[in-house]
Design a protein around this nucleic acid. Structure first.
Lengths: 201, 201, 201, 201
DNA sequence: TATGAATGAGGCTTCATTCAT
DNA sequence: CATGAATGAAGCCTCATTCAT
C-alpha cells in the first residue's frame, strides 16, 4: 500500500485522492447538492458503498476538498510573500496575485468549488473555514494598506481595493478555457497590472 | 417596495411575486438543488401543492427569478447608458457601474442567485440566458474599449478590464451588510473609482 | 373527512389507525428492527412514501403504538380499581388481573410489542414510557401490599409477588391461541386464582 | 474447535467465546436485528471481516448463543431433578426453580436473548430450538402434575401453574440488578416460595 | 488468523409532482 | 385557488458478506 500516503505530489493514486478528483469533477459542474454520491462513485469507478470505506459521508468529501484548497492557497500565498522584501509593496502585490491567479487556473474546478460551496459546508467546519478565507483576504488587504502607508499605492480605500483584487483574480477560474487566446502567464501578467491599477500604483 | 415589479404596478402582491420572493430567500441561502419545493412553500406560507397553481415546476420558478433579474439589469444598464453622452466614456462607465452596484445591493439575494445558479438552469433556457449575460458583459467591455479608443482610458486590455469590473461589482452582493460601515452610495462611489482605475482612466 | 379523528372506538378507519394496525401486525412478528418501513406500508396497502404523510418516522409509529398501549392499560386498570371497595383486596387483585389478562388477550400483538420493544424506543420518550410501565407495576405491588396490611394476603414478599403476578399475566399474550382449549374467560379465572395463590390469599 | 465449548470455566479465552460474549452483550441490548456485525466486531475488538473466520454468519452466532443457552439450561435442570427423590415433589420443584433462577441471574443477558430472539432464528434451527424450549417447560409442568397426583400440590390447573412458574422465574433476568437489595440466593428462595404457592403446596 | 477494501441489496427518508376534493 | 394524501424515483447511508493480501 505504498501510495496510501497522500502527499499532494503528482502521481499520487490513493483511493482518497481519486475520489476527491472525481468529486471535484462532478461537483464543480452541478454543485454539492446537485451531485449525488452515485455521481461521484461512478466517476471514480467505484460503487457508492465503497466510497464509505474512505470517507464517512458526502459532506466529509466536500470538507476535504475545501480544506485542502484553502490550506494550499494560504500556504502558497504566504510562501510567495516571504520571498519578496517588505519594502517592495508592488512586488509583494504582484507575487500574491501571481499565486492566486495561477492556482485558480491550475485547479479551476477545485477552486470554483471552494468559492461557491461555502454554504454547503456544515457547522462547525463552516465557521472555521470562513475564518481561513477571511485570513487569506486580509493578506491582500494588508499588502495594499502597507503599500499605501509606504506611499507606493494611492487608493483611498485599501480594504475595498484588496477585496476587489481578490474577487477579480478568483473569477479567472470561472471563465478561463485552456484553448482560449491567452496563456496562463499572459493572464497572470494582465491581472497583476489590473491589481496594481486598482491599488492606485 | 417599488421593486416588486411583477406587473410594473407598485404594491403588487400577486401570489407569483410572493412565491418568487420566498424562493429567492431560501434558494439564495441553500442554492437551487439545496432547496426543496417544500422549503419555498413553507416560506411563502403555502402548501407545496399550491405552488403548482402558480408555477409549473420548481425549475420554472428559477427561470422566472433568473430571467427577471437579468432582464431588469439589462434594462437599467441600457437606460443608464442612454442618459450619458457618447463622448463621455468616464461618465458612461460611472453610470453603468452605478446601476450594477446599486442593483446588486438592492436585490442582494436575487442577484446572488442569478450569478450562482446558471448551472441549475435547464436547456434550452440556459443557453439563451447565458447569451443575455454575455450581452450584458459586452456592454462593459465596449464602454471600456470605447474609452480607450477615445484616449480617455489607458488600459492595454480593455476586455479583461471590462470583465474584471463586472466581476468585482457583482461581488458586492456577496459581502454587503446593511449594518456595515458604508452606505450604498459610498460603496457605489468607491467602485466607480475602482472601475476607472482598472480602466486606466 | 369524517373518520379522521382517532377516537379509539371500533370502526375507526383513519389512515393513522390503519397504519398502526399494520405496524402492530408486522412488528409483533419480526420486531421493530426486523421490520422495514416497506413491510408496514405493504401491509397497510400504501407506498412507503405515503406513510410519511401520517407519521414523521418509523420511530414515531412505534411511539404511537407503545404509548397508546400503556395509556389504555393504565386507564383500564385504574378504572377497574375504582369499581371495587378498598376493603376488598382480593376483589381488587381479581379486578386488575382481569383487566390485565383480558387486555393482553384482546390485543395480543400490540401488548407483545409493548413488552418487547422498550429497547427500540429512543430517548427521551423511552424514559417517560418506562416510568409509565413502572407506575403500572406499582399498582399491582400496592394492591398486594395493601392486602397483606389488611391481613388478607399472607405473602412475606408483596413486591416480588406483585411483580411475579404482572409477569405471568403479561405472558398470556405470548402463548394464547384463539383455537386453544380455553376461552378467554377461563384463562382469566385461572390467572385470578394463580395471582391470589401467589399473594398468599 | 477444541476450545470452543464455553464451559464456564475461568480461563477459556477462545476467539469463539470472546465473540459470543461480545454478541451477547450488544444483542441483549439492541436485539438481533438491531445489532450489526460491526457492533459485535467492535465489541470483540476485531474487524468485521475477522468474525467470519470464526462464524459463517451473523445468524450462526445467534444459533450458537441460543443453543448453548437452552442446552445448558436443560442439562442443569435434568441434573437437578436427578438429585431429588421422585417422591418429593416440593423438593423437585424447589430444585428446578433454583436452577432456573440462578441460571437466569448468572447469565442475565444471554438468557434474555434466549427468551426474546426466538423469532430471529431461521428455520430449520428455529423449529428444533422451540421444541427444546417446550421440552424444558414440560419438565416444570410434569413436576407440578406429579405433585398434584401425589396429593402434595393442590392447584386445579397444573399446566397453567407450570407455565406461570417458568414465566415468572425467567423474568428475573429482566429486572435483577447486582446492586439491588437482594442477593441471588434470597431471590432464589423467594421464587421457590412463589412457585410452591402457585402450585398450591 | 487478520483485515482493508469492495459491493449488491436494502435500510429510512425526502423529493417533485399529481390529483381528488 | 388551496391542500391533504398519494407515489415513483431518488437521496444518503448501512448492511452482511466476500476476497485479496
Amino acid at each position: 500500500m505504498l501510495a496510501a500516503r497522500d502527499t499532494g505530489v503528482a502521481g499520487d493514486v490513493s483511493a482518497e485522492t481519486l475520489i476527491i478528483k472525481a468529486a471535484v469533477a462532478v461537483m464543480s459542474e452541478h454543485g454539492y447538492h446537485g451531485t449525488s454520491v452515485r455521481d461521484i462513485a461512478d466517476r471514480a469507478d467505484l460503487s457508492p458503498a465503497s466510497l464509505y470505506n474512505h470517507f464517512a459521508s458526502k459532506q466529509q468529501i466536500l470538507v476535504a476538498i475545501m480544506e485542502r484548497g484553502i490550506d494550499e492557497l494560504l500556504r502558497r500565498t504566504r510562501e510567495a510573500l516571504d520571498a519578496v522584501p517588505e519594502d517592495d509593496p508592488a512586488g509583494r502585490l504582484r507575487a500574491i496575485v501571481e499565486v492566486h491567479v495561477l492556482y485558480h487556473l491550475e485547479d479551476q474546478r477545485g477552486t470554483q468549488l471552494g468559492t461557491s460551496e461555502l454554504r454547503a459546508l456544515e457547522e462547525p467546519v463552516r465557521e472555521a473555514h470562513i475564518a481561513k478565507r477571511l485570513r487569506h483576504q486580509r493578506i491582500f488587504e494588508s499588502v495594499v494598506e502597507d503599500g499605501v502607508a509606504r506611499g507606493v499605492f494611492g487608493t483611498p480605500y485599501p480594504a475595498d481595493a484588496g477585496r476587489a483584487i481578490v474577487t477579480m483574480c478568483t473569477a479567472v477560474a470561472t471563465w478561463y478555457r485552456a484553448d482560449g487566446p491567452l496563456t496562463r502567464e499572459e493572464i497572470c501578467t494582465r491581472y497583476q497590472e489590473l491589481a496594481l491599477a486598482a491599488a492606485g500604483a
